[in-house]
Simulated assay, not measured.
Amino acid sequence: MNLVIFGPPGSGKGTQAKLLQEKNGWVQLSTGDMLRAAIAAGTELGKRCQAVMAAGNLVSDDIVIGIIGERYDQPDCAKGAIFDGFPRTIPQAEALDGMLKQRDKKIDLVIELKVADEVLIERVKARIAQSGGVARADDNPETLANRLKVYHQNTAPLLEYYKKQGKLVTVDGMLPIVEVTKAIDDVIEKAGHKGCCCGCG
């Protein structure tokens, strides 16, 4: 099964994707993690991305899609993948659909974690208070506010895109983590029963 974990920055996508990976053997494909690794390694890609990410803006589609396509072709993705932080725009979603179609695959399910902006801002403030300072250059209230603005402008239309495909399910991301996990498991179980005849599960 291939699924997208969808939601604003700080909504818990990464946490839930890791849990799904442990449980089902689907590989978590986090573009954010891949790009941060490139920045830490000081690669050419990392240098190009560093200034963009630090400001909370989006990396160009060709870079992101190239990373995703190469990673998806690795043997450990044979069972399926969890797209975490990608796609973020309609063109990216269309490119992802095209990339998967070339491999006779598709996105089976899109799960939106819905969290209010003010809650996300408070979460960042709490993280900073607990750690005694900013842990990451792009993890502060000001940058998050910009990332949320970018998200609502560019990424929110994806809700309608996937809704039209009949793949979108919304989960309350403000519930405790274990309850969010259970809600996601229930959604996947229903989707698996609906899609089991096509061999994608």
Score class of each variant (00 low, 15 high):
residue 5 I to G: 07
residue 9 P to H: 01
residue 14 G to T: 13
residue 16 Q to Y: 07
residue 17 A to P: 00
residue 22 E to T: 08
residue 23 K to W: 07
residue 26 W to C: 03
residue 27 V to W: 01
residue 28 Q to Y: 13
residue 31 T to C: 04
residue 33 D to N: 13
residue 36 R to K: 09
residue 37 A to V: 03
residue 40 A to Q: 14
residue 44 E to G: 13
residue 45 L to N: 07
residue 49 C to P: 01
residue 55 A to Q: 12
residue 57 N to F: 07
residue 73 D to I: 02
residue 77 C to R: 02
residue 81 A to C: 09
residue 87 P to L: 02
residue 90 I to T: 02
residue 92 Q to N: 11
residue 94 E to K: 13
residue 97 D to W: 09
residue 98 G to L: 09
residue 99 M to Y: 14
residue 99 M to N: 10
residue 101 K to G: 04
residue 106 K to D: 12
residue 108 D to V: 03
residue 113 L to E: 04
residue 115 V to R: 03
residue 116 A to C: 03
residue 118 E to L: 08
residue 119 V to T: 15
residue 122 E to M: 11
residue 127 R to T: 08
residue 131 S to D: 02
residue 136 R to F: 01
residue 137 A to E: 14
residue 138 D to I: 12
residue 146 N to W: 11
residue 146 N to G: 10
residue 148 L to H: 07
residue 151 Y to W: 10
residue 152 H to M: 03
residue 152 H to E: 09
residue 155 T to V: 01
residue 156 A to T: 13
residue 166 G to L: 11
residue 171 V to A: 05
residue 172 D to N: 13
residue 175 L to K: 10
residue 181 T to L: 06
residue 187 V to I: 09
residue 191 A to Y: 03
residue 193 H to I: 09
residue 195 G to R: 10
residue 196 C to R: 14
residue 199 G to A: 07
residue 200 C to L: 11
